[in-house]
Simulated assay, not measured.
Amino acid sequence: MDKMGLGTSSQLKESLKKVRHFALDMDGTIYNGGTLFPFTIPFLDYLKENGIGYSFLTNNPSKSTADYLAHLDKIGIRATKEEMYTSAQATIDYIKVHHPETRRLFILGTPSMVREFEGAGFISTADDADDVPDMLVVGFDMSLVYPRLCRAAWWASRGIPYIATNPDWVCPTDKPVILVDCGSICACIESASGRKPDLVIGKPDPRMLSGILERYSLQPDQVAMVGDRIYTDVRMAHNAGAVGILVMSGETTMEIVEQSDLKPDIIAENLAEIQEMLKIH
Rank of each mutant, 00 (worst) to 15 (best):
Trp169Gly: 07
Asp233Glu: 10
Glu258Trp: 04
Met254Ser: 08
Lys196Glu: 12
Asp221Asn: 15
Ala242Asn: 08
Cys171Ile: 12
Ile178Tyr: 14
Ile256Gly: 01
Ser191Arg: 14
Val180Met: 11
Gln259Ala: 15
Lys263Pro: 08
Asp168Ala: 01
Ser193Asp: 11
Pro197Val: 07
Ile163Arg: 01
Lys175Asn: 03
Gly241Tyr: 04
Gly211Asp: 14
Cys182Val: 06
Pro172Phe: 04
Ser217Gln: 15
Val177Leu: 15
Ala164Val: 04
Cys186Glu: 14
Leu246Ala: 08
Trp155Ile: 02
Tyr146Trp: 11
Thr253Gln: 03
Val200Gln: 04
Gly241Ser: 12
Ile185Cys: 02
Gly159Pro: 01
Ala237Leu: 04
Thr165Gln: 02
Ser217Leu: 13
Pro197Asn: 03
Pro220Arg: 10
Thr173Met: 06
Glu258Pro: 01
Lys203Phe: 03
Ser193Lys: 05
Thr165Asn: 07
Asp228Glu: 07
Gly241Cys: 07
Leu218Asn: 06
Leu199Thr: 04
Val200Pro: 04
Met236Glu: 09
Met236Ala: 05
Pro176Gln: 09
Met236Arg: 05
Pro197Glu: 03
Pro172Asp: 05
Asp228Leu: 05
Gly211Cys: 13
Met254Cys: 03
Trp154Asp: 00
Tyr162Trp: 02
Val170Asp: 10
Val257Lys: 08
Glu251Trp: 09
Met225Asn: 12
Ile245Asp: 06
Tyr231Val: 06
Ile185Asn: 07
Leu179Trp: 08
Thr252Gly: 10
Thr165Asp: 02
Arg195Ser: 03
Ala237His: 04
Gly211Met: 13
Arg148Leu: 03
Arg215Lys: 15
Met208Leu: 05
Thr165Lys: 00
Val257Ser: 08
Ser157Arg: 01
Pro161Gln: 07
Val234Trp: 01
Pro172Arg: 03
Ser143Ile: 00
